[in-house]
Design a protein around this nucleic acid. Sequence first.
DNA 1: TAACATGCCTTTAACGGTAAAGTAAATAGG
DNA 2: CCTATTTACTTTACCGTTAAAGGCATGTTA
Lengths: 353, 353
Amino acid sequence: MTPTTMKRIAADLGVSITTVSKVLNNHADIGPATRARVLARVEELGYRPNAVARSLTLRRTHTLGVVIPDLMHSFFVEVVAGLETVANARGYGLLLCSSTENPRKERSELEMLRSRQVDGIVLASVHGSNNTELLQRIAATGGALVMIDRDDHPRVHCHRVLTDDELVGRMATEHLLAQGRRAIAHIAGPAITHAKRREAGYVAALRDAGLEPRPEWIVRGGFMDADGYHAMQHLLTLDPPIDAVFAANDPAAIGAMQAIWEAGLVVPDDIAVVGAGDIAHGDLLRVPLTTVGWSKEELGKRAAELIFDQIDGREDVAFRRVIIPPHMVVRASCGEESPGAGANTPPQSRRQR
Amino acid sequence: MTPTTMKRIAADLGVSITTVSKVLNNHADIGPATRARVLARVEELGYRPNAVARSLTLRRTHTLGVVIPDLMHSFFVEVVAGLETVANARGYGLLLCSSTENPRKERSELEMLRSRQVDGIVLASVHGSNNTELLQRIAATGGALVMIDRDDHPRVHCHRVLTDDELVGRMATEHLLAQGRRAIAHIAGPAITHAKRREAGYVAALRDAGLEPRPEWIVRGGFMDADGYHAMQHLLTLDPPIDAVFAANDPAAIGAMQAIWEAGLVVPDDIAVVGAGDIAHGDLLRVPLTTVGWSKEELGKRAAELIFDQIDGREDVAFRRVIIPPHMVVRASCGEESPGAGANTPPQSRRQR
DNA sequence: TAACATGCCTTTAACGGTAAAGTAAATAGG
DNA sequence: CCTATTTACTTTACCGTTAAAGGCATGTTA
């Protein structure tokens, strides 16, 4: 009933607890006979070291805290999958928390992780969270911290892994321009840094093409598909009509498409749509969604690497800012025939259940 | 740099560590003056108790281990979201592990969780994992254990939360029968218990309707969309042709639809399709997928409740088997007009990013 | 007024492990 | 052959916390 401890093994064998500890940690100063006896008994009793006790003495929990805004969003889940791979390979566990886009919950999760003595924290911070001070304290007390995807809390000194959001907006817009679209609207996200940068990229691309974006082309919305839906309803009333829209993220783009369909229009013939983020299953939609993607797995892995660099304790941490480059994911919704990626290829292997 | 400890606070105030501990744990035998002084200093230094040390003495980590086969599959992620909600409300954290459908990794995750002394484990076990013995040991040594969704390891005594898979198969098939379909094929899953039950439900429903399923109507495939795709290619060669297909899960159903489209046929006019699992975004597909669903949030919550019941330690644990009832999710792919759920309603609120 | 309870705080031990310092016996060196 | 060194352990202390038992004034009861 009570799990086996070193004490038990030591008592059984008439040796000291330290001897057992040394055997298990491969210290050199244990004789082969004793070593064998200990190992045998360990095997026999199925002894597993108590990680909690180990953490206490070693001051290392081999645990990473992960705080993301939304468990249901495939983007973050894929990032977590990337993290998990690297962490697992190093014997680390992931303590997963969802802030549900709530700054208060984010705060309490962060404090919980701190009190649990996690060796590092990976955070995609909620917008408007005034947790800057707490994060500064975490970073200052030597806690490894990496912020991912979102670029707020500029005063917090820590590693960051994100994409080039202005380039995201620029690529999406330039792609639509290349398809011959000229009246390109933008469904903007909330007042969060990376959303604003996508908008800036959109504006810059239009200007570079000699087009001045009309004010009414930019509808400030949000990141949810309902936001995209309502924003699109508004855009559909414009005269002269628009012929394309870049939505700040994929859910909003999907909402926009629904509004377009409802109005009896066709994507991409009447209005081309491009999103951002490369959400899972974007290829399986009624009209497969063209989007700007950046590798979430890469993002997760780089974040994990930076965390471990810091944990491994080069004190001279120069905080890095890793940019995951975005790339176009061309599907049907933008009006370009995607080369060879039509309905004629067998589906790629997706995960099972 | 070194985080504040009780020792530090006690020394500052000239009281014993125990006194500080008692204040923080609201023991009655501390005078109001001392209590106030301690609390003031705690506040001042921003003291947070070290959860690791607490875990060691209290023999409670306030952590649940979660092992799922696939982080990328929306089904499990939604279950985890349900778990997270309940766990968080009780001050519990979730240590998330993905077995990536690999029995060996499942085993090592389970052992890792055990050595980390988690208070309970929620497991969706990989098929064919011969971890039965390990699970029995976990259950026997008093570890709280709940198995979810999958119903293997019959000899392990623990709580289970799952759906009625035979009913899933039956409902899907009966729904197709009700649409007037008669030549209904089945894309079966792998040789895992819940897949076999779905197949049994399919067969039973046909027989109840006085139809004998032809052997060639059942194609043993898998749970991945590529499996559904290839299975469907085969089914398309049958003569007389089929007019409907029930796939053992949604990814397979999606693969099947791709094969149908490629053959130049129309869903549901030529072939109706029903899946199982109610995958995320099933409503946004080229043809919205009719499927049989069961609440993942409910599943996650019930699992968490059972875990906590066991942790709270009624010794008289009668292991429960909670069935989450399945329900039809009628969309376009089965040929029935879904009432009011067409493209005319605004999209439901989906999560943002 | 001795016996007893009460209020308030401290001491001791423990949780399960690791590290550093100590020790006794075997081996080596001069 | 007697002192260094090495080998193979053990002892002690500590990680940060909590529980159980102990102590000691002061107040209450018989």
